[in-house]
Design a protein around this nucleic acid. Structure first.
Lengths: 106, 106
DNA sequence: CGTGTAAGGAATTCTGACACG
DNA sequence: CGTGTAAGGAATTCTGACACG
């Protein structure tokens, strides 16, 4: 349920100009954060970047940390940690579902 | 709740080329349906069209009807009818909420 | 390190129009 | 009626680089 409903949130369809407007970040900043492996837009055949709403949210979190003086390297570590946690969460749910049927965790 | 969660679905951030790819419709078709008042993209200051996922869904419904031979004029009437129903629904909910507090209808 | 900017090219989008049927 | 297309212009996006600090 809460996974299916994220279909819109995770679809990479927003181009960089629009992302720039939404987040208030410059295109330069957005591209730089990609260079630093903080964000991973989809690339169309022609090479233009497409972002999801999730990406937009992540960018805003990144922007906050940057303002606080956190370096991109540190931010990257935090992101990796978060992702590992998410994977672990997913696996636990999968195992529970496999044994006891579908259940809904908050 | 079900209203708040539509925030992503209703944000007009997708440009016409991407909408064309998602729906399989040509840009010409998409612009024509706008001319016929079936769809209402947001316009940026510079004049480029931006669509939401809701718009994309509506376009796919329109495409289906067109294939069935329904004319744009008829489609427009159906859309107007649907919108009126939605408004009525919303008002009823609002009145119920006002009198009995928040409740959740399917 | 993080970000601005000018540079040149490629791809996108827009409008109004002609065409077919 | 619904859609394709060529036309010309304006706006977007991309990359690699120089700059500052």
């Amino acid at each position: 349920m809460s996974i299916k409903s994220e279909s819109y949130k995770d679809k990479k369809v927003i181009s960089i100009g629009t992302v720039s407007e939404i987040t208030g970040l410059s295109e330069r900043q957005i591209r730089y954060y990609e260079e630093r492996n903080l964000i991973f837009p989809y690339r169309t055949k022609k090479g233009t970047r497409k972002y999801s709403f999730s990406d937009v949210e992540r960018l805003m979190e990144i922007a906050e940390m940057i303002e606080e003086g956190v370096q991109t390297f540190e931010i990257r570590k935090k992101i990796l940690k978060k992702e590992k946690e998410a994977v672990r969460e997913k696996m636990i749910r999968g195992q529970l579902n496999a044994r006891f049927g579908v259940l809904r965790l908050p």
